[in-house]
Amino acid sequence: MICENNITRKVPALVCAGLMLGLCGCRHHVRVSPLPPVLTPVPLVEVPRPADAPMLTPPHIKMPPMPVAAAAARLPRERRRPVVKDEAPPPVVSPTPAQEAATIGSLTAGGTGSSQTRQDAANLIASNERRLNGLSAQKAEQQKDEVNTVKNFEKQAQDALGSGDAEGAMTLATKAKLLLDDLEK
Rank of each mutant, 00 (worst) to 15 (best):
121 A>I: 01
76 P>A: 08
126 A>W: 08
84 V>R: 07
132 L>M: 08
139 K>Q: 15
110 G>M: 07
127 S>H: 09
79 R>V: 12
111 G>P: 01
99 Q>D: 12
67 P>W: 05
124 L>V: 06
64 P>R: 07
112 T>D: 02
94 S>D: 05
90 P>A: 11
76 P>I: 06
67 P>E: 08
98 A>N: 02
115 S>C: 01
75 L>R: 08
85 K>F: 00
69 A>P: 12
110 G>F: 11
73 A>C: 14
107 L>C: 05
98 A>M: 03
102 A>P: 06
65 P>S: 14
95 P>I: 08
116 Q>K: 10
93 V>S: 03
113 G>C: 01
86 D>L: 02
125 I>C: 02
124 L>M: 15
116 Q>P: 07
123 N>H: 12
137 A>T: 12
92 V>M: 00
96 T>V: 04
85 K>V: 10
118 R>W: 06
128 N>Y: 00
123 N>I: 07
102 A>T: 05
125 I>A: 01
125 I>N: 00
78 E>P: 07
75 L>E: 04
108 T>H: 10
72 A>P: 00
147 V>H: 04
91 P>E: 09
134 G>P: 00
83 V>P: 03
81 R>V: 10
111 G>Y: 10
68 V>I: 11
89 P>A: 12
123 N>E: 13
122 A>Y: 03
112 T>N: 04
74 R>A: 14
129 E>A: 10
101 A>D: 13
134 G>N: 15
131 R>W: 01
80 R>S: 08
137 A>G: 13
67 P>H: 08
80 R>M: 03
126 A>C: 07
127 S>F: 00
66 M>Y: 11
87 E>Y: 08
105 G>T: 04
74 R>M: 13
82 P>N: 00
97 P>I: 05
122 A>M: 02
88 A>H: 05
68 V>E: 10
130 R>C: 06
110 G>D: 13
88 A>V: 00
106 S>R: 09
110 G>P: 05
78 E>C: 13
118 R>Y: 07
87 E>S: 13
141 E>S: 14
144 K>V: 15
97 P>K: 08
117 T>I: 06
135 L>C: 13
115 S>P: 03
147 V>R: 01
87 E>I: 03
125 I>Q: 02
137 A>Q: 13
65 P>H: 12
70 A>F: 12
85 K>W: 03
